[in-house]
Structures are given as structure tokens and as C-alpha cells.
């Protein structure tokens, strides 16, 4: 048993960096040359530059009413459920929490993102109503785990178990795409342009709550 773990640890360390492809071929790096520079765009409507710097106090008022179209989701829709945790979860949750690092598969608009703390996520859409610096609380997850343990939800975990926060980093855009649309027996060529924007999140915190705070 012990010799097997030693052998396994030796095998783990033997994977040299040369076994991996060069860094620019790794998918995270690959995004750099497939992408334009990140630009921080101002929030959409009802935004005055003077509101960021509150020193000029004259026209700071009028933005309250206009931001209803792209209002972000602010409040938690439902109060945390009062259902108690199952005994096996109660038994094994401290073991999971004691492990050094955790991952979570958080669901945003029904799509799972398998992340850990410190990850940068490029969402496949531009999230409306958020600006760089906002802190989002991710409260839907289907699994939460570490190296040795995984807590799976059916289909989702109890949202009191964990605290996962993400900070909005900004908006990225893809290079402009051109698509030539043609019809038969017609010389006209229609060029459709598209250039989408994507919100960048950084997972700033992933914490597992202890049992006392969950039960209370």
C-alpha cells in the first residue's frame, strides 16, 4: 500500500514539462492570439462619467430611472431552503472542507462552468447590467469537490453549503467575422458582419461553509 503510493508519487513527478505541448498551443494561451485586446466598456445606459467620480455633484442624479431595461439581478429570488442536510453529507462535508483546494461546477443560465478559485471565465455572452468590479454571487452548482471527494447535487446542491463569488473583469470581443451570403443566379454578394462581446469573470472566492452556519 505504502510502496504503491510512493511509486505513484514518483510517476506523478516524472511528467516533465517537455511532455506537454509548447505553451502557446495550450488552449488558455491560444485565446490570446484569437482575440482582440480586452477593453473595458462603459456601462450601457443611464450612465454618466461623473457618477464614477462623485466630486462633480451636479448631474449625478438622473440615472436612477433609466437603468430598468438592463437591470441586473440583484436580490436572491428565494430565501434559503430550510431542508436539513442528509446524514451522509453531514458526515463527509467536514472531510471535503478539510481538503486543500476545491472545484465547483457552477451553473449560469443553466450552463455548467467547472471552475476553481482564481480561474478566469469567458462567458459565451455579454452579461447585461453588470460593470467591471461588480461581485457576483454564484448560487447554483451541480457538483462541488476536491481531489478525493465530490459532492453531487440532484440536480443542484443546497446553496447554503458553499459560497462562490466571481468578480466581473470586463468585456472582451472577438475579431470581426465576415460571412458572404450568396444566392443562386444572382451576382449580389451580401457580407454579414458580426462581432460579439463576452463578459469575463474571475472566480474570486470559493468557500465551503461549516455545518453550524448551515444548520442555523
Amino acid at each position: 500500500m505504502l510502496s504503491r503510493t510512493i511509486r505513484k508519487s514518483i510517476l506523478d513527478t516524472r511528467i516533465s514539462p517537455s511532455a506537454l505541448p509548447p505553451t502557446f498551443l495550450l488552449p488558455y494561451r491560444a485565446r490570446y492570439f484569437n482575440n482582440t485586446a480586452q477593453h473595458v466598456e462603459p456601462p450601457t445606459d443611464g450612465f454618466n462619467a461623473s457618477q464614477v467620480a462623485p466630486t462633480s455633484s451636479e448631474n449625478a442624479q438622473p440615472a436612477e430611472s433609466t437603468s430598468s431595461a438592463t437591470s441586473p439581478i440583484t436580490a436572491p429570488t428565494s430565501a434559503s431552503s430550510t431542508a436539513t442536510l442528509s446524514p451522509s453529507v453531514k458526515e463527509l462535508l467536514p472531510l471535503l472542507a478539510a481538503q486543500p483546494s476545491h472545484y465547483i461546477s457552477a451553473h449560469i443560465h443553466g450552463r455548467p462552468y467547472l471552475v476553481t478559485a482564481g480561474d478566469i471565465v469567458r462567458l459565451p455572452f455579454r452579461m447585461p447590467g453588470v460593470v467591471p468590479g461588480d461581485v457576483l454571487r454564484l448560487n447554483r452548482a451541480s457538483s462541488l469537490g476536491s481531489r478525493d471527494y465530490t459532492l453531487k447535487g440532484a440536480p443542484y446542491l443546497d446553496e447554503r453549503i458553499f459560497e462562490c463569488r466571481a468578480r466581473v473583469m470586463g468585456t472582451e470581443s472577438e475579431p470581426m467575422r465576415f460571412k458572404e451570403k450568396t444566392k443562386r443566379r444572382n451576382r449580389k454578394v451580401n457580407v454579414v458582419k458580426s462581432k460579439h462581446k463576452f463578459t469575463i469573470l474571475r472566480i474570486s472566492e470559493l468557500k465551503i461553509n461549516d455545518l453550524e452556519s448551515i444548520e442555523s
Binding site: I73, T74, I108, H109, V131, G133, V135, L136, R140
Partner: peptide
């Protein structure tokens, strides 16, 4: 419609 799965916990002043 699936649940959004997030809410804005603290917004920067805007």
C-alpha cells in the same frame, strides 16, 4: 427558463 444562477452581491458605484 433555467435559473440565472447568480445575483449581483455588491455593485461598484455607477
Amino acid at each position: 427558463r433555467p435559473d440565472p444562477g447568480y445575483y449581483v452581491e455588491s455593485a461598484v458605484p455607477r
